[in-house]
Amino acid sequence: MRCDKKDLLLYAVTDRHWLNGRTLHEVVKESLDGGVTFVQLREKQLDEEHFLQEAKDLKELCSEYHVPFVINDNVELAIEMDADGVHVGQSDMEAGDVRAKLGPDKIIGVSAQTVEQAVLAEKHGADYLGVGAVFPTSSKDDATEVPFETLKAICEAVSIPVIAIGGITKENVKELAGSGICGIAVISAIYGQKEIRKASEELKAATEEILKKK
């Protein structure tokens, strides 16, 4: 398996909007110390040269923690800096095309909102699915909400791991119990908090708790 189910328990997505004068390295390290199990570099505002620098630095950091590190959207960049994989949206490109470019050993995550999209992504070689937004979110302007029933139906329709994303906090994560997910992906619930390590620890504990309730 390119990516283990347990690696997807607490999936952190970066956003420099929350840095408040700190470096991305510092905040990601803090989140890893708090138990984050997977990191995605998602930086919409960075030019390619700086993105590449950040990516190489974070890849090294994540490998010290034995945590998978993937790039958002940019398949070429992921290949260039030898990331562990890439996460693509529905509009970015078919997972099959991504697999052909990345080769057999890299992790491919695909965003899905419907059962049809999920089944197709699995067929095309996706390793895991990110499904959402499960709650209202301010991180993505175009995020459509995915009801609990759809999330559950997606989890039942595919055999690859599914993580929920979008507006998840340690308070509302319990509402996802019984959906069939194997973890959650968050941005501000970790990186928007004053104490990143503590936020990561609490969120991880809350997620482990709901995963016990099958």
Rank of each mutant, 00 (worst) to 15 (best):
A164H: 01
A126I: 06
M1T: 15
V158W: 11
D84W: 05
S200A: 15
A143L: 09
I71Q: 01
I210Q: 02
A206L: 01
T137Y: 09
C3W: 02
E195Q: 15
P147K: 11
G103R: 02
L8Q: 08
S31A: 15
E80N: 13
E54T: 05
Q117E: 15
L19Q: 06
I108C: 03
K152V: 06
K194D: 15
L176K: 01
E26K: 11
V27F: 06
A126W: 08
E202D: 13
R197M: 13
S31C: 13
A55T: 08
H17V: 13
D33K: 14
R16F: 00
E30G: 08
S111I: 04
V39L: 11
L176A: 06
P161I: 04
E208N: 04
N20R: 14
G21E: 05
K101N: 05
F148T: 06
K174N: 12
L151A: 03
P136I: 01
G125C: 07
C182T: 12
I181Y: 03
V158M: 03
P147G: 05
L203E: 00
V158I: 03
D47Q: 12
H50R: 14
R2F: 04
Y191F: 15
Q40G: 06
E156D: 14
A133G: 02
A185I: 07
S159K: 15
Q117G: 02
G125T: 11
D92R: 00
K101S: 11
K44H: 03
S179F: 07
A100S: 14
D47M: 09
A205E: 14
T137L: 05
E49S: 14
D15L: 00
A95L: 07
L19C: 00
G89N: 07
K204C: 02
G34A: 11
D57N: 15
G21N: 08
E64N: 11
E43K: 05
T207H: 05
G180P: 00
D92E: 12
E94L: 11
H124C: 13
L61D: 09
I210S: 04
A199Y: 03
T207W: 00
V134L: 01
Q53D: 12
Q53M: 13
S139L: 05
E54I: 09
E54P: 01
S200P: 07
E64K: 14
Q193F: 10
T207R: 00
L176M: 08
H17Q: 11
L77P: 04
D141W: 02
A199M: 10
L211W: 00
L24M: 12
D82R: 13
D84T: 09
G96N: 04
G89W: 03
G178W: 04
K213L: 13
I160H: 08
A118E: 04
C3V: 15
S139Y: 07
A126C: 07
F51A: 08
L211C: 01
L8M: 10
E80L: 14
Q117D: 09
K152G: 06
H66Y: 13
E54D: 13
H17K: 14
G183E: 10
D92G: 01
A157H: 04
L58H: 09
I181D: 01
